[in-house]
Write a protein that binds this DNA or RNA. Structure first.
Lengths: 222, 222
DNA sequence: ACCTGAACACCGTTCAAGT
DNA sequence: ACCTGAACACCGTTCAAGT
């Protein structure tokens, strides 16, 4: 992408690589081929360099992955927040997290597996806090409201990110349910379970319910 | 644990191992040392056997892990469901999932990372469906209600399971927030963020809100 | 049927050495 | 300061061979 890789300013550099470029290429590689495809050797080959060079620039694999997540966190443009009242605006931000996650599935699910979701979504969580403040929700109440909404969104991401991502395991809900029989559950319900939910609609309903629980229904912001 | 390992009935067996015991020991090892500690070689050593024996009995690593999750799924005793109306009973089941997950952190977070949550929680999800039925919620509505509640619980598990599990990454929320400054967020809120939420209380509030959204407030079951 | 031994192709990481 | 080459200790998996 950037042409800085082949720059050689007459210094002792042979490749002209810097830390930022290593991380950016790592991000690209993960988005393209998944996070398991990012081995130190594969990334080195991609950069036209030896494995040890990566260690010199950014450190080991754990540091590299953390840096990738931080990079994406900064790149996720904080889109404009629309909505007439705090409830709507909080919902708008929740949808942005949801949308961003689907646009960057591989890094998002990586962050998820690493327990670094907060690191990735920090800017959007901060935006959400500002809305809570303007709705008069602050202190421990704001913290809990944030946790609840983020938790709920995270739950949706768990489901949304696993479907076409790791096709190896056939333990996906719809296939599992097709083998179940139970005389205390109607046939209509069991049949419905074999078809996927409309996650979009379900997201709206559920997240709205949680937001309404924590954000008061004030018409105008303070 | 079971003494079947040293049994040798005069057949050609040298060790007397069977598939179930391999899987049980794998489960024990994961619960004790974490899922990363379960290597084929480590498990083989634990069993007093060669690596290849595991392949003969249960197959590769993926199959082994799936079998472990299925085993725990069967072992999670379906405790008694208490509550006067469907809403309360659904909440009771949600709490059981929550409790079981914390009692078996390592396997649960493994199932989570594998996208096999449904496989693990199937019996409890089925119990929840029965409550929906008795509340008159069936078909696609029951499926969506199940999804919403499970999703929400899954979100809580994401947070609850990452704290003392993988101590390697310091990207935990509380530490991250301690460095943040923002003039549009009050000091009280920022300070609250550096202290962990009461997940127990938050679970009750949030899950109840979601359940109420999908299960009608009927006093008595049909 | 059940299990071993040796081997293969990977992996992350380190360390001395080069310019 | 920046990068290479060789090596180490791991890993999952396979395959022929033993009883």
């Amino acid at each position: 992408m950037s042409t800085t890789a082949t720059r050689n300013e007459g210094t002792g550099r042979r490749v002209g690589l810097d830390r930022d470029e290593v991380i950016q290429r790592a991000l690209d590689l993960i988005e393209r081929d998944g996070s398991e495809a990012l081995t130190m050797r594969a990334l080195a080959t991609e950069l036209g360099v030896t494995t040890t060079t990566i260690y010199w620039h950014v450190g080991g694999r754990e540091e590299l992955l953390t840096a990738v997540i931080e990079l994406l966190s900064r790149q996720q443009a904080e889109a404009e927040i629309v909505g007439d009242d705090p409830r709507e605006r909080v919902f708008c931000i929740a949808r942005q997290i949801w949308t961003n996650a689907q646009a960057h599935r591989n890094v998002t699910s990586l962050a998820h597996r690493m327990g670094a979701t907060t690191l990735l979504e920090m800017p959007m969580e901060l935006a959400m806090l500002r809305e809570f403040e303007s709705a008069g929700v602050r202190g421990a109440k704001a913290r809990d409201a944030l946790q609840a909404v983020i938790l709920c969104v995270a739950g949706f991401l768990v489901v949304a990110l696993r479907s076409p991502a790791s096709g190896s395991l056939d333990a996906h809900s719809t296939e599992l349910w097709s083998t179940v029989e139970d005389d205390r559950v109607s046939a209509a319900t069991l049949k419905a379970l074999t078809r996927p939910s409309d996650l979009e609609a379900l997201f709206n309903t559920t997240v709205t319910a949680v937001i309404n629980q924590f954000v008061p229904d004030s018409g105008t912001a303070a």
